[in-house]
Amino acid sequence: MRSVIFRTFAPFITALMVLFSIFVLLRGHNEPGGGFIGGLVGASALAIYGISAGVGPARRALKAHPMSIAAFGLLLAAVSGVLSLFTGQAFMTSQWAAVEVFGVTVDLSTPLFFDIGVYLVVVGAIGSIALALEERESD
């Protein structure tokens, strides 16, 4: 699997896939896509990088342990549900706020952060599984 061509192109493919995964995540609310799908694309990117460059470099490139990413995602999702409690509404009631950034109105909402949490969980957990299995292959 470690052909020269694969090893040469893998970093670019990975970069593109990560970018694409974030795109899929953000468009998810209005077009097909979302946290789960984006997360799977991201995890695949990790897996491809792991296969081509080795698990060690993949882990180093990630900085954090993939399970930490997943755990952070779970926390983010949970916290985005808790926010509504401060306004006296039930758990997970969605909150919306429009923020002006450089003259463009951006809709920020708790479901958005929830979806980002889902994304991080899937990237982290599935990526962690993939890397763990590859690790046994490469050593």
Binding site: F36, L40, I126
Partner: peptide, 17 residues
């Protein structure tokens, strides 16, 4: 089904290991 697919995959991975 969408969430079920993802969960069934993670269980599949667990069973595999």
């Amino acid at each position: 089904v969408l969430t079920a697919i993802v969960i069934s995959f993670s269980f599949f991975a667990f069973l595999l290991v």
